[in-house]
């Protein structure tokens, strides 16, 4: 992937996470700590399937090497 393509993809993902964070914190006071806590939780939920897929991929690669 080219650098511009990677940057575009990262930008889209970051925008998506921010939208989700804003949406999740819609009804609460817009305090920095609260927004950051929500942001971290959104990242955590997003990271779970990615971590699962990464672990599965690593496992398959390891078993293929053996």
């Amino acid at each position: 992937m080219k650098k511009a393509e990677t940057a575009a993809a990262v930008f889209l993902i970051a925008a998506g996470v921010l939208c989700l964070t804003m949406s999740a914190g819609w009804f609460i006071e817009p305090q920095f700590t609260a927004v950051m806590a929500t942001f971290m939780q959104v990242c955590l939920w997003m990271g779970l399937p990615i971590a699962a897929a990464g672990t599965l991929y690593w496992h398959i690669k390891q078993s293929r090497r053996q």
Partner: peptide, 30 residues
Amino acid sequence: AVKQSVLLAGTGAVLLAIGFIFILTRKLSM
């Protein structure tokens, strides 16, 4: 307010999906 919140979450999900789909399709088609 709830509708706007859901709409924003939906937009975020779509943007997130586009980002990941872009990476995935590039990796798959490479």
